[in-house]
Amino acid sequence: MPQGIRFKDIRHIIHAAILIVVVMVGFLVARALTVPKSFGQYGHYRGDSIHENQDLSVILENPETCRECHESELKRKPDEPAIWPGLDAWRKGKHGSLTCANCHGNLKEHVERRRKDPTSETFVVTKDNRPQLCLLCHHAIVARPKVLPIFDPLREEHASYLEVLKEEQEEVIGCNTCHPSYRPHDPKLSE
């Protein structure tokens, strides 16, 4: 190197360096503006996400809610009909391990309506009485434990249901005409 480095020789490098610094500062500014405040609160994620996940609404009502009104007949006003006639039988019966929604569907709408206005006309929970509901558990399919009472299509009384099942008809007498859902083990019916 015969002579030292002159300013003229490195001017373009300084300009390039300024450009690089501008880009990097821009990146840091963009980062500071974009990264959510709660990021890193509990770990390498948005802390608010935990609360967003917690705050999702509950859809499936739990039996505790049902018990608020349907626990016993004591809460019943004198002029009202018994609101859960089968309660005791259901609990002691073979369907006692089921939850309300298994047969009644989700009751969120019913609960919300009654909570808003308890005097409102009683919302009748629509039961899905079609045999398909019962057959979810009681249809004979491979791997289903035989100790469950299995629907026997060969029984004379069941003959009409077979037609129903084949054609997926909507209107049909439910299984509970003969097998009451709350007392499926009723000795009268097993005869």
């Binding site: 190197m1 480095i5 020789d9 373009h12 300009h15």
Partner: peptide
Amino acid sequence: LTLGVREVTPGASRIDHGI
């Protein structure tokens, strides 16, 4: 594209080569 430096001095050329 020149970033405002519109000459290539021999010294700059030598430095650029190193870079």
